[in-house]
């Protein structure tokens, strides 16, 4: 019990004194996950609008499939991206394996289903009359989509924040395609995993605390938006 207590005190010390390693790992975590979230958003918002507004065969099936992938295990994505990026894989020539870029790719793949699915359901919650009204006033297809996305802005923002939360808290992909290389691909989750197995509970706790604080910030933002 005292060990946990001492760990906690030491952890807070590390945070408050802005320990160089803690700051560096946190910064890398944030950067990678923010980039992944931005990339996935740029991809999923228009794609979600396309799925929502177009009528095509198998649309319901596609949406069910996307929703099923919300809970895909991160290690499965890690494996997939590993195979794609490994030297003998189809994208091996890019030499991306065990780089932050590979982690970004993995996280993008991980959060696409959540972002796409939540974008589609956000758009569906907008009254159909809005789109009709826009078209009746001369909006083109893309202009109508932008308007409906704007109308659903709170739900869409919530989707983006959820996706960010999933990206920053995952560990499977970061380890498998990032490799947890110190000073290069080591992020909050992988560092916690490694330091714990090495017995450095204090650093682990500090990093865990930061992760919790990020989760708290994400949740507070979400609540503010949904209020």
């Amino acid at each position: 019990m005292t060990e946990i207590w001492q760990g906690l005190v030491r952890a807070i010390e590390l945070i408050v004194t802005l320990d160089a390693e803690v700051i560096e790992i946190t910064w890398r975590s944030l950067t990678i996950s923010v980039i992944a979230t931005v990339l996935a958003s740029v991809l999923c918002l228009p794609l979600g609008a396309l799925v929502h507004f177009r009528r095509f065969r198998g649309k319901r099936l596609l949406i069910s499939l996307v929703q099923t992938l919300y809970s895909v295990p991160t290690v499965v994505i890690g494996l997939l991206v590993f195979i794609l990026l490994s030297r003998s894989g189809p994208l091996g020539g890019l030499n991306l394996l065990f780089t932050p870029a590979a982690m970004v790719v993995g996280q993008v793949v991980l959060i696409i289903p959540i972002l796409l699915g939540l974008t589609i359901s956000a758009l569906s919650s907008v009254d159909r009359t809005i789109a009709d009204t826009a078209r009746s006033l001369g909006a083109s297809g893309p202009q109508t989509a932008v308007l409906v996305l704007t109308e659903a802005r709170f739900a869409v923002t919530a989707a983006v924040i959820m996706a960010f939360g999933r990206a920053i808290s995952e560990v499977g992909i970061a380890i498998m395609v990032g490799g947890n290389i110190r000073g290069f691909t080591r992020v909050l989750t992988t560092a916690i995993s490694l330091e714990t197995s090495r017995g450095d509970v204090e650093l682990s706790m500090a990093l865990g605390l930061i992760l919790l604080l990020i989760a708290l910030a994400v949740n507070l933002t979400l609540n503010r938006i949904q209020r």
Binding site: T129, I130, T133, A134, T150, E151
Partner: peptide, 8 residues
């Protein structure tokens, strides 16, 4: 349209 719908 019959149901006037305001954009937010």
């Amino acid at each position: 349209l019959q149901k006037p719908m305001a954009f937010n």
